[in-house]
């Protein structure tokens, strides 16, 4: 199955955002949801059946100057085996954010079912002065199930420079993925990139910081950004790390998605604009 979906958000000229393009096809269907406000929320619907091996899915998102868009999904994506011999299923998400624009991407997790063979490619380009909050969660296998193969690749560019490049491979074709260097016994992983003029993670995280570990920011990092007070270890297996460029990565792993959500959900919000 091939499908393309496209989403373009623009400033409406009255301090709000309008959707200039909202186009999808099964299984990538898009619906505007949520209350009217300064920003627009769109949900991916119908994402539950698949992707299956052989599927080729593309989603393109463009956020214009001074527009604010949140993209979520109503259900987890479940990567499934599909036709034997077909190429890997593939979801390519490409997003651009203009100066003064803001994009929050926070879909439900991708679940790697047994026997799947899935490739997820994310390519995000943010102009200087744009804001990005990008969350991706992966669950390796349904309940008590060994996962198939998933390879994800993420490239995030900010102001013309590559801010973050990351690939993760899980499943039988990935040597050592369940070993103590990569995921160990964890079967869920979440990552959250926050990039922009004030790249601190979102407000009031109050994570479960009862791990007893000293949780100060890395003394090696001056941490001058607005969110720097919250950099460092979160509770459990979660940490917020300042990137070399204007952004932070919050990363969490856990036996299932609950620990990941507890650590990352409070941070997965668009920063409140700073009055100029």
């Amino acid at each position: 199955m091939r499908a393309e979906a496209s989403l373009v958000a623009e400033a409406d000229g009255a301090g709000g955002t309008r959707l200039a393009v909202l186009r999808g096809e099964s299984p990538l269907l898009l619906r505007r949801t949520g209350p009217r406000g300064p920003g627009v929320t769109v949900h991916l619907v119908g994402g539950a059946a698949g992707p299956l091996r052989g599927d080729d899915l593309r989603l393109t998102i463009a956020v214009g100057e001074r527009a604010t868009l949140s993209v979520r999904s109503v259900a987890a994506q479940l990567a499934l085996p599909g036709r034997p011999g077909a190429p890997p299923s593939r979801l390519v998400v490409t997003a651009t954010v203009a100066a003064g624009g803001a994009l929050l991407w926070a879909p439900e997790p991708l679940i790697a079912a047994a026997g799947c063979d899935h490739v997820a490619v994310t390519d995000v380009t943010v102009a200087d002065g744009g804001t990005l909050v990008w969350r991706d969660d992966l669950v390796c296998g349904r309940h008590a199930e060994e996962p198939g193969d998933v390879r994800s690749g993420v490239t995030i560019r900010y102001a013309g420079r590559t801010l973050y490049r990351h690939e993760l491979a899980v499943g039988p074709a990935a040597p050592g993925w369940s070993g103590p260097a990569v995921l160990g016994t964890a079967r869920a992983i979440g990552s959250l990139i926050v990039a922009g003029p004030s790249p601190g993670p979102g407000p009031s995280p109050s994570p479960g910081s009862g791990s007893g570990a000293s949780s100060g920011p890395d003394p090696a990092d001056p941490g001058s950004g607005p969110g720097s007070a919250r950099l460092g270890l979160l509770g459990g297996d979660a940490v917020v790390m300042p990137l070399a460029g204007p952004g932070v990565l919050a990363s969490a792993v856990g036996p299932d998605i609950r620990q990941v959500r507890a650590a990352l959900d409070p941070l997965t919000v668009l920063p409140v604009p700073v009055p100029v």
């Binding site: 690749g153 993420v154 490049r165 990351h166 690939e167 993760l168 491979a169 103590p180 260097a181 990569v182 995921l183 160990g184 964890a186 992983i189 990552s191 890395d218 460092g232 270890l233 297996d237 979660a238 940490v239 790390m241 990363s251 792993v253």
Partner: peptide, 12 residues
């Protein structure tokens, strides 16, 4: 760009 989440977490 192959990454290892537990190496990052452990290093921090």
């Amino acid at each position: 760009a192959a990454g290892a989440p537990l190496l990052d977490l452990g290093a921090e």
